[in-house]
Structure formats: structure tokens, C-alpha cells
Amino acid sequence: MGLKNMGRRVAMVGTTAALMVGVLAGEAGATSTNIDSWSTSTAPVRCAKALCLYYSPNAEGAIWQNGEAGAGDLGYWSFANDNAPGSNSGAGAGQGVRNNAASAENGATNCSMGIYVYPNSTGDSNVLDPGRGGNLTSNLRNNEASVAPLGVQYIYQCG
């Protein structure tokens, strides 16, 4: 099952740049280990706090945000409707966040964000650079348990 998924994605790689409108093919390199796909500073700007998860892809649906702290177990949190225009922001409102998120945004300017399969920042992860949003990879989508800022900006205390 997992290998079959990879086969499909491989077929997409060569053609992705041609098919995806407005998305330029960056260098296919090391930065492909993050899920950065869009800038968070476009309307509607929903992620004013550092770490945000969304019920739906592309920063749509209900939102979870918890300031700078992240969460060791998203099972203790629920999505909320922030009434963001054009975002279907009611979808998923009131539902638990754990194993229920499809996309994420990082509203910090200087700290990266990690989203993990298992609680307390363990297991495989997706990483978002500051000011970036992206859709969770297939193994993280609706299968995420914890979120944390990464203390990676050298002198900044992110975590």
C-alpha cells in the first residue's frame, strides 16, 4: 500500500511543474523535506499565532491555534470556527484536533514548526518554515498527535 502510493507520486514529479498553476518548480533538493507550499500572509490571514492546524487542506475548515506553545497531545484540543471569509471555517468546528488535521500554517517569523505522528514530538514528522503553510503528507493527514516549535533558529529560544 505504501509503495503503491509512492509509485503514483513518482509519476507526478516530472509533470508537477507543468500542471500546477502558479506554483513554480523550485530546486528539487534538500528543502523538499519540508511541506512549505504557500505564504501565510495572504488573505484571509488566519494564523496570527505561531502554530495553526486546519481541519481541511489549503488552510480551510475550522482552525486550531495555541500561541507559541504547541501541544504534546492534540487529543485535548478542539477545532474552532474563526469565521474567516471564504474558508469554510465551520467545517470540523468542535471536533477534536488529534488525527483530524489536513493542513498547517506557521505564523512565526523565526521558528520552524514540527507536526508529529505521535505524542510529545515523536515519530515521523512534517516541518513548516516560518511564514509558511502546507498540506500534511498522506501519513500525517488525519494521523497527527502533537505539534511543537522547533528551537532551530540558533539563538532564538523557540521551544
Binding site: N5, M6, V13, A17, L24, E27, A30, S32, S41, N126
Partner: peptide
Amino acid sequence: RQRAVNSVDGLVEQLKAASFT
């Protein structure tokens, strides 16, 4: 939506995810 895309490849991320599962 303004896009700043590092890479549309994602292959490394996909392989890393699949091997974990």
C-alpha cells in the same frame, strides 16, 4: 494565495514517511 515554493518534488519527504509506516 501568494506562493513561495521551495520544492514541488516532495519525493524525499514521501520516502521518509513511507519507510516509517
